[in-house]
């Protein structure tokens, strides 16, 4: 395989740092979530000890720490869900024609854009994590240095697969759809249910069954599981719910994300293979 996808990636990153306003917004938005929503909710929940029973001997996690994992996951979701939009611009007003007329196989565009999406997720999630720690998020409590490094790597592995899945989905859609408006609408339509049917901001254990079913096919849920497992350990309580993760559950979560990424890869692959701009 040639390395032309690195060129596509190079361009993605040029554009990422060049649009200063967009870059700023992309970094500030999740920070605001943490700062406003996180702190507001935390001061509500944690001031009411009856609503949040704790189990003796089990680590009790405050809400800010609990939702920080969710905000990291949501950040990756937003970044990648809208990450394919650039392709729609390229198709209508940009250099998609040039790329498709070149001898570079079209899946290189997909891989380059995918790498770009993952990198952007990494940068944003990393910054949010650092910002959260500054705000008082209690990740990696009682971890040794080596364990912390391992935990961070684990988190990023989850972020990587999840991001790839959503960037491929968004790229595939962008290549198939003609107008900006329809894709925008589709993405907006997707974001809300993905966010609120997941365990990013609250526990799903008391959901009605139908909502739990939706939650169980929502990739965001599996990403959040992964992040919490690596950041908070396998046994803790938060918001009155007792979380116990086994290694097998986490492996399964990862596998679900892999399957999701695999499916969207094929979806995008097909879109690129038949792409024509004339």
């Amino acid at each position: 395989m040639g390395r032309e996808f690195l060129t596509v990636y190079w361009r993605e990153m040029i554009r990422f740092v060049r649009f200063k306003g967009q870059l700023f917004a992309a970094l500030v938005q999740p920070a605001l979530w943490l700062l406003l929503f996180g702190i507001a909710m935390t001061s509500n929940f944690d001031s009411n000890p009856f609503a949040m029973p704790t189990i003796p001997g089990v680590v009790s996690v405050d809400y800010l720490t609990f939702m920080a994992a969710g905000v990291m996951a949501m950040t990756a979701l937003f970044t990648c869900l809208f990450g394919g939009m650039g392709l729609l611009f390229d198709k209508n007003w940009g250099i998609m024609k040039e790329m498709l007329a070149s001898p570079m196989p079209s899946y290189h565009i997909q891989i380059g854009v995918g790498l770009g999406g993952v990198t952007k997720s990494f940068i944003q999630v990393g910054l949010i994590m650092v910002f959260g720690l500054v705000l008082g998020v209690k990740f990696f409590l009682g971890f040794s240095a080596l364990e912390t490094v391992f935990a961070v790597l684990g988190i990023f592995a989850f972020i990587m697969i999840f991001s790839a899945g959503f960037i491929f989905l968004s790229a595939g859609l962008a290549m198939r759809v003609e107008s900006m408006e329809s894709v925008q609408a589709m993405m907006t339509l997707l974001t809300l249910p993905l966010m609120f049917s997941s365990n990013a901001l609250y526990s799903t254990s008391s959901f009605p069954v139908w909502l739990q079913t939706i939650s169980s096919v929502n990739p965001l849920t599996y990403l959040v599981n992964g992040i919490r497992y690596f950041a908070l350990g396998n046994d803790f309580t938060a918001m009155g719910t007792h979380y116990e993760y086994t290694g097998g559950e986490i492996a399964l979560s990862f596998a679900v994300l892999l399957v999701f990424a695999g499916l969207t890869f094929v979806f995008a692959w097909r879109a690129f293979r038949t792409a024509k701009v004339t």
Partner: peptide
């Protein structure tokens, strides 16, 4: 690409043509 420079435009092309 409206946001790439003249040099980058040529560089990009040269690279995707290996």
């Amino acid at each position: 690409d409206r946001d790439m420079t003249v040099r980058e435009t040529l560089e990009f092309h040269g690279r995707i043509y290996s």
